[in-house]
Design a protein around this nucleic acid. Structure first.
Lengths: 155, 155
DNA sequence: GCTATCCCGGATACTAGATATCCGGGATAG
DNA sequence: CTATCCCGGATATCTAGTATCCGGGATAGC
């Protein structure tokens, strides 16, 4: 169980973009520099977020990244799934149907109990992530930090 | 985000041991054969479970694995943590303190908002896994399957 | 004691996914 | 037309999970 750092990077970038005055585009280089991240690799994650509709990318001069929709409509889960995919973390291999103790298919119409438990936990995790939006995170920042970031983005 | 297959294997084995008549030891070879698993690798996971106190291993003839404590006192989370470790899946890299937008340490006394959200989700996941015990899983199995497995273990 | 059985734990190898970089191509503003 | 800036494929590296093997030690039964 491990959440990739790309999720952290993208969450920070998306939150920062939510503070951009007037939602003006921010260049990739500026985003990477703001958090001291490798621009080339960050690009991959921003691309994924763009493909998912979380971000909107504008090419050319004056271009850059903006939020793809209002910050209040972007949940943390949206970002996580954009970067990590939406596959379940536990995939039942149906080993109950293998080996000398293999159960016949007719005994396996119902899902494996273990699979149910693991999926329930995954649902709880996702529900928790879905309950918070990027607007919530941005709104929870102290005013001084918001002002500081806005000032940096304005340059 | 991915749960290793070792967790699935160990959960199945522990559940099976909960069905062993009289809690008699079951050999590793038998466990591996029951589910068609590679014995050498399964050994690693069983060792980890033993170290965590979930299983008890007896060497020598008539030896094998038994539950280390009553099935009702073994939660699914116990097994997951025995195999995967108890480290949090999200580790905050504090990138808010790096790059051109770096915040001064005095602005970072409180945890990063993003870290809080991710940890809350992790807590929800763990709580869900803690709510089910191996006894629950074993008890949820249809009688025919329980009987079938008991018969195989008796051999 | 002696021996057959069975688990422990370290060493090793392979694989998949995450991390990281580069570059040609295409879109846009001025 | 040109400078700017993102897209997407190719490539390289590193880490963690998967998988196997073997010498060592503990136990039961004779």
């Amino acid at each position: 169980m491990k959440v990739s750092q790309g999720v952290e990077w993208t969450l920070h970038c998306v939150t920062l973009l939510a503070l951009a005055p007037g939602g003006v585009p921010v260049r990739r280089e500026q985003l990477a520099g703001h958090y001291g991240l490798p621009e080339a690799y960050l690009a991959k994650h921003l691309q994924a977020a763009t493909k998912a509709g979380i971000l909107r990318a504008t090419p050319g001069p004056k271009g850059g990244y903006q939020l793809g929709r209002p910050a209040a409509d972007i949940t943390v889960l949206d970002v996580v799934e954009a970067i990590e995919g939406s596959a379940r973390p536990f995939i039942c291999q149906e080993i109950r149907q293998q080996g000398t103790g293999a159960l016949p298919p007719e005994s396996c119409e119902r899902q494996c109990q273990i699979n149910v438990v693991m999926n329930n936990a995954d649902n709880a995790w996702r529900s928790s992530l879905r309950a918070t939006t990027v607007a919530d995170i941005a709104g929870g920042l102290p005013d001084e930090i918001v002002e500081r970031n806005k000032k940096l983005l304005a340059r």
